[in-house]
Simulated scan of single mutants.
Amino acid sequence: MNDYVATAVGMAMGAPVPPGTLVKLGSDWGYLSLGFGEHGKRPPPAEFDELAVERPWEATGVLVLDQWIANFDRHDGNLAYMPTLGVAAFDHDQSLFGACPPGEGVESLGGSLHRRVSSHELAPHLKTSEHFEPWITRAKSITRPELQRAVWTCVDAELLSRLEAEALVDFLQYRQNNIGQFIEDSYSEFTGITAWTLDADGGE
């Protein structure tokens, strides 16, 4: 469920995430996404310094997405960059509800509602802040009905209760509106950026 909703949100904002969907596996549900790599091989771990310099647009988009969905688990094993193919961010199972125990989803969301993703792996490698504003604008353009559509798919599959679904939509909308503040509170971690034009609302 975390992977499905996080990917739906990422695709809606145009972030570099491989398309994926829920699939029925016997009596259970699973998540299936397109592979990223050449000749069916798993891509090598991303070199974050290379990615940030050569693809700053995509790198910034991944960082903005992670702040939105409260993904504290970004590393070179779930972020791929191949110059011949592009960038792919995947494996978002620790975002949103994360690994919370069954029945504790709403409490889990409440605990991370205001929590900033600190020490993001990409932060010290970025050299420019110019792409934050357009990415935040993209994220904020996604409406509540669009968020509900993705989340309610999980209700129909009985992966979420209605209470959990409403809490998740509220969670996404709150963090959506505060991405700029989360980024601003992280300024000291972007050691490669010397000039900032972003304000807490995502404008210049």
Rank of each mutant, 00 (worst) to 15 (best):
Ser119Thr: 12
Leu22Tyr: 07
Thr84Trp: 13
Gly202Ala: 07
Asp66Val: 07
Val155His: 04
Arg144Ala: 10
Asp201Pro: 02
Met82Gln: 15
Leu159Gly: 02
Gly86Glu: 08
His39Val: 14
Ala6Ile: 07
Lys127Met: 11
Ile193Gln: 01
Glu166Phe: 04
Thr128Leu: 08
Leu51Asp: 01
Asn78Tyr: 04
Leu79His: 03
His114Ser: 13
Asp91Phe: 09
Ala200Gly: 12
Ala52Val: 02
Val155Thr: 04
Glu130Cys: 14
Val9Met: 10
Val17Tyr: 04
Asn71Ser: 09
Glu50Lys: 15
Pro83Asp: 02
Ala165Ser: 03
Glu146Pro: 01
Leu109Cys: 07
Thr197Lys: 15
Glu158Leu: 11
Val9Cys: 10
Ala165Glu: 00
Asp170Phe: 05
Val64Ile: 14
Gly40Ile: 08
Val23Pro: 05
Pro18Thr: 06
Lys127Arg: 15
Val106Leu: 07
Ala89Asn: 08
Ala12Met: 14
Gly202Trp: 00
Asp185Ser: 13
Ile136Trp: 00
Leu198Gln: 04
Arg175Pro: 00
Val9Ser: 05
Glu133Gly: 09
Trp29Gly: 04
Ala15Asp: 06
Leu51Glu: 01
Gly61Asp: 10
Leu147Pro: 00
Pro44Ala: 11
Leu159Ala: 04
Ser27Met: 14
Ala52Arg: 00
Leu113Cys: 09
Val23Met: 10
Phe182Tyr: 11
Ala99Cys: 12
Val151Thr: 03
Asp49Gln: 14
Asp201Thr: 13
Val5Asn: 03
Val117Trp: 01
Val87Met: 05
Ile193Leu: 10
Leu51Pro: 02
Trp152Lys: 11
His131Leu: 13
Leu79Trp: 01
Ser129Thr: 10
Gly35Ser: 13
Thr153Tyr: 06
Gln67Pro: 03
Trp196Asp: 06
Ala123Arg: 06
Glu104Lys: 15
Gly35Cys: 11
Ala165Ile: 00
Ala59Leu: 07
Pro134Asn: 06
Gly35Ala: 14
Ser129Ile: 10
Pro145Met: 08
Ala12Pro: 06
Glu58Phe: 03
Glu164Gly: 00
Glu158Phe: 13
Glu204Val: 15
Ser27Arg: 14
Asn2Cys: 11
Leu168Ile: 05
Arg115Glu: 15
Ile179Tyr: 01
Ala8Arg: 10
Arg74Gln: 06
Thr128Gly: 06
Asn71Lys: 09
Ser186Lys: 10
Ser108Phe: 11
Arg175Ile: 03
Gly35Lys: 07
Glu130Tyr: 12
Ala195Leu: 14
Val5Ser: 04
Glu189Tyr: 04
Met82Asp: 15
Gln67Arg: 07
Asn2Pro: 06
Leu25Cys: 13
Arg116Trp: 12
Leu79Gln: 01
Glu166Cys: 04
Ala139Lys: 02
Lys140Trp: 06
Asp170Tyr: 08
Gly35Gln: 11
Ile183Gln: 01
Ala88Met: 09
Thr191His: 11
Asp28Ser: 14
Phe190Ile: 09
Ile179Glu: 00
Arg138Pro: 02
Gly14Glu: 08
Ala59Phe: 02
Tyr31Val: 03
Phe190Gly: 02
Pro124Trp: 05
Trp135Met: 06
Leu160Ser: 00
Ala46Tyr: 00
Gly180Asp: 07
Thr153Cys: 12
Val9Lys: 01
Ala8Gly: 12
Thr84Glu: 15
Pro16His: 05
Gly202Lys: 01
Ser161Val: 10
Pro145Phe: 04
Pro102Ser: 11
Thr197Pro: 07
Gly20Leu: 07
Gly10Lys: 02
Leu32Met: 15
Leu85Met: 13
Gly192Glu: 08
Thr21Val: 15
Gly111Leu: 13
